[in-house]
Structures are given as C-alpha cells and as structure tokens.
Amino acid sequence: MSEPPSDLTQTPPTPVPAAADRRPTVAPASPASPDPVSLLGRPRRRRLWRAIPKAWRTPLGLVAGVVAVAWLVIAVVGPSIVPHDPLAQDLPRFQPPSSTAWLGTDELGRDVFSRVIAGARVTILLSLLLVCLSMLIGSILGVVAGFFGRWVDEVIMRLTDLVMAFPTVILAMVTAAALGASLLNAVLAALVVSWPSYARVVRSMVLSLRTSEFVASGRLLGFSPVRSMRVDILPNVAGPTLVMASLDIGTAALLLSGLSFLGLGAKPPMPEWGSMVATAVQNFDKWWLGLFPGLAILTVVMAFNFLGDALRDQLDPGATKA
C-alpha cells in the first residue's frame, strides 16, 4: 500500500495579507471612551448598557450599529413607507426640497426621498448577497486549496493571482460590460473580483492551522481529515472570515453603486443610489439630486465598516480577555 507523503510536513507559505491592500483603509474604532455608565445613572439604562457586548460600547460602534440597523430596517420595509411612488413622474421637475417632496424631485419629477429609501433595498440587500456569495465561494476554494495542497492549491492560487493582478474596479467594469448592463450582472462582476481575497486568507489560515499542534493531536487521536477540518480547523477560520466579510459589506456597496454609476448596473427607472448620483452629475446645479443618495452611500459604507471593526474587536479572543 503506497502512502501519500505526509502532508503535515509542509511548511505553510507565509500568509499574504491579501485583503488588506484591496479594501479602503478604515479608521480603527476609537479607543474606549470614558465610561458613559456614570452619565446614564439610572439602573435600567445601566442594565441595557451591559447587555451590549463590550467591544461595541464605543461611541463609533454604537452609532455605526444604530445606523446600520436603521438602514437594514429601511431596506426591508422601505418600499411600503415611502410617501410617493419612487417611479411615478407626477411631481414638478427639479423641485428643491420642500414640504411635499422632502428631498426635492429629480429631472423626471420623481420624489428623491422616496427613491433614496427605495434604493436602500437594492443596494444593501445586493451588497449582503454579494458578500455572502464571495465569502462562500472564496472560503470553499480556500479550504480546498489549503486542504488538498499540491496541484489543486497551485491552480486555485494562480487563479487568484490572475484576478488580483487587475485593479478591482476596472476588472469589474470589464466583466459587467461583457455580461451586459444589469444589476444581477453587476453582482456577478463584483463577485468575480471579490472572491480571491477570501480564498487567499482562508487558504493561508487552513495551511497554518493544519500544521498546528492541536490539529496534530487530533489526527493522532484518529480524527479523519473531515472531522479534523470540521472540528479543529473551520471553527478557527470562521471568526476571522466573518469579520473580513463584515468589513467587506461597505466595499461591496461602494462597488455595486460604482458600477451603477457607470451605467453598468441598475437600469434607468430603478431607484439605485449610484445611478441617482450619475444623473446628479449631469445636473450639477441641482445639489439635492446628488447629495442625498451620496450621503446614503457614505453612511452605509461607514456604518458597516465600523460595525466590522467592532465585530473584529469582539471576536478576537486575545482582545476580549486581557
């Protein structure tokens, strides 16, 4: 019986900090603020405060959490609470913000407020979808590469190199243009450029875990490779990967609205922030056209980035227990 040469002997290549250089840098969450518990005073509030995980008890973490939750709620219930039909062209055109159209109207007489609210569903849900898909695909490929090694690893890693050799946005543009302009194609294009960072990070984590001592102990106890993967390796990969994904939601929103801005995503009547900003650029003097969808993108991106930071602080076992 020929035994495969021991796979545990390989030294893992040094992990490549792949994701870091592709993501816009995010300011670290501010250091813990002076304990606001004393400011709140009343015991009920204090109990509420304690219910919040420690890492989130920073002003930035809290604000980000509130903003992100608000946007998620809007994304879910948005279309049913809008004051006007986001597609109806029945208002006067180019109206500045007023009591009938709170954020003004656009070049076709549609209510900007309603369109911003309705656009939340498109952008946020698609970003979540994109992040989940790229995390899933990237992680599976990364685990496969790290687990099987040899030529499987080689093929997958060269593929990530190939994708990562191009600037993200340009590759996404080319892909979206090749697939044809539609929102779904924009997601596919974004998927093409965003899975490799997950694949790389997951692979390097799997490789270094596979040679670690507790994994070796498990194998000596007779763990099958599948068991070893499920029990010893994946749980240790999951945390960092989820943090990476949550940090990626903002980037995904930016990428998707960027593609729509360039006309490669949402098609005209659809309320989408990126394409709304694009029309605003053509009507530069109508400040309300671009400001509000722009602010929507900004707050979503920042909220999810800070949320990711807070999550990372919380999940890092070293940081939680000093």
């Binding site: 035994e3 040469p5 021991s6 796979d7 545990l8 001592e213 007779g222 099958s224 068991r227």
Partner: peptide
C-alpha cells in the same frame, strides 16, 4: 504508516503525544 491525507486507524492510536 506516516499520517497522510487519510485518518489514522485505531491500530495506531496507541501512540500519543503532548506538545
């Protein structure tokens, strides 16, 4: 047998190690 991609049979789990 060296520990390869396959799991170790109970025959060999009489060897354990503390790291």
């Amino acid at each position: 047998p060296p520990l390869g991609l396959r799991g170790r049979s109970p025959e060999w789990t009489g060897i354990q190690m503390v790291f």
